[in-house]
Each structure stands twice: as C-alpha cells, then as structure tokens.
Amino acid sequence: MKKTILILLFALLVTGGCEQSQQPPSASPDDGPKTEQPATTTADAASSPTETAEQTPVPPSPPLFEDFQGQPQISLFPRVGPARPEKDDKLYPFWATYLDHLRRISGVTDRPVESNRAFSMRSINGVDTLGWFAPIAVTPDTRYRVSATFKADLPEGAVCGIGVIEFDRFLWIGDQFTRKQLDEHQRAASVLINLSGKIDWQPQSASFTTGPETRMIHLLFFRDGPGGKEPVLFDDVKIEKD
C-alpha cells in the first residue's frame, strides 16, 4: 500500500507545480488561522531586460530557516490539484474557488499548548491533493538537506510531507503553474518526506541533489488523500547545502 501511495505522489509531483515568492493573504476571523502578508512581486526578472541589477528582486536562497515567529523567511503559495487550469477551461472557476477556500482555512497559527507558531494546512472535501509551496533559488548539481517538524493525525489512506519540484530558472510568478508552464520549465520532481497516521512534532529530514539545469525549486508541503478534521501543522523549516 505504501509503495502505491509513493508512486501516486511522485506522479502528482511530476504533473503539478507553481511559482513566485509571497505569503497567503490574511484570513478573516471566521475562516481559520490568520496569515502574514508581505509585499508581492509580479515582475518576471528573467524576461525584463530593461531592469537594472538594483531593481531586480533577490530571490530567497539557502541557507534558510523559517520558524514563523517574525519576518517571513520563505514565502508560501497555495496549490490545488496537479496544475492550474487555463482561464478559458471550464474547470477554472472550480479550481479558483478551492484555492480561495484553501487560503482562508490555512496559514500561520499558534501551536497548541506551546507559546509558539506554526503553519496550519487543512484538507478540503473532494480535493485529493493540495498543499503550499515555497519558491527557492538553488544552484545546479548541488546537494541540499531539508528538515522540518510535523504534527498531524491523518485518517487511513491520507499522507503528508515534503516534495521538491525542479525548474530551469527562477520565475517571479505568484501562482500555480499551468500544464504549459510545467512542460516548458519543469525538469524533475521527487518526494522527500512521506508521513501517515499520527505524528506529534516529529523532526524529519531528507537530502536531494539538483539536476544540471535546475536553478529554482518549489519546496512543496503536501497533503494527499481523504480529508479529515485535524490540520497538518509544520514548523522549523530549514534548507541548506548538505
């Protein structure tokens, strides 16, 4: 069964992706935990030849450590399904509704009992694969180590964890990728950490090596499978050269 889940997760990663660097908007008090909202950037640095070096934003790159206590060190974007439908696709309105709902029910929240903060990710009925991704600049042919702590109580058949999607350049696109964008820029994908059942702030870590063309990754925090009442919480996210 675990082998089947891993194969499914890898297939979802290979067919899904997204981009830029920003954090989700604040949720209303009735919609779930609140999130912090930094300034957003929509410029595509790679395709703006008129910009000077001073004007070009500097993408986040390792070493990075995010404990959700103060100024964001990584920026998280919502992800629903394997890819973003094109706007003329009949599925686009449904995707957009699910994405908006995910923003409202997830985000930075206080950890239970402890005077600490973490990122809370909830499931949505009828959506089998969702998550949050952080765009990070990396160098080709380089080994990195990713670590984080998780808390979850997942129903049977559900999993959560961390995946990596590799791209050929850093793109400043604050949205999930379409199939066309994936075909053009994605170079690889892998599942690094895969968890099931009950997890109580267990530290997790894994290493990966970027490909020869990889210059950006999406560090993907995913939740796949049947929905449940309990959120997946993750904290103390670190990525550094191994």
Results as ranks from 00 to 15, higher is better:
residue 1 M to G: 10
residue 2 K to I: 14
residue 7 I to W: 08
residue 8 L to P: 00
residue 13 L to A: 09
residue 13 L to F: 14
residue 21 S to C: 11
residue 22 Q to L: 12
residue 22 Q to G: 06
residue 27 A to M: 00
residue 28 S to N: 10
residue 36 E to Y: 14
residue 40 T to P: 10
residue 42 T to N: 09
residue 43 A to G: 09
residue 44 D to T: 04
residue 45 A to W: 13
residue 46 A to R: 10
residue 59 P to D: 07
residue 60 P to M: 01
residue 62 P to H: 03
residue 62 P to D: 01
residue 63 P to H: 05
residue 68 F to S: 09
residue 78 P to M: 01
residue 79 R to N: 11
residue 80 V to T: 07
residue 83 A to Q: 11
residue 86 E to I: 08
residue 89 D to T: 04
residue 93 P to V: 04
residue 93 P to C: 10
residue 95 W to R: 00
residue 101 H to I: 09
residue 101 H to T: 15
residue 104 R to D: 15
residue 106 S to K: 02
residue 114 E to V: 12
residue 115 S to W: 02
residue 131 G to E: 03
residue 131 G to F: 03
residue 132 W to F: 15
residue 134 A to C: 14
residue 136 I to Q: 09
residue 136 I to P: 12
residue 137 A to R: 08
residue 138 V to W: 08
residue 143 R to P: 03
residue 150 F to A: 06
residue 150 F to L: 06
residue 152 A to F: 03
residue 152 A to V: 02
residue 161 G to Q: 05
residue 168 D to V: 05
residue 170 F to K: 07
residue 173 I to P: 00
residue 175 D to H: 12
residue 181 Q to S: 12
residue 181 Q to N: 11
residue 190 S to K: 08
residue 194 N to R: 01
residue 198 K to E: 09
residue 209 T to P: 03
residue 210 T to F: 09
residue 215 R to W: 05
residue 218 H to K: 05
residue 218 H to R: 06
residue 221 F to G: 07
residue 223 R to I: 00
residue 224 D to F: 11
residue 225 G to E: 09
residue 225 G to D: 05
residue 233 L to F: 15
residue 237 V to Q: 02
residue 239 I to N: 02
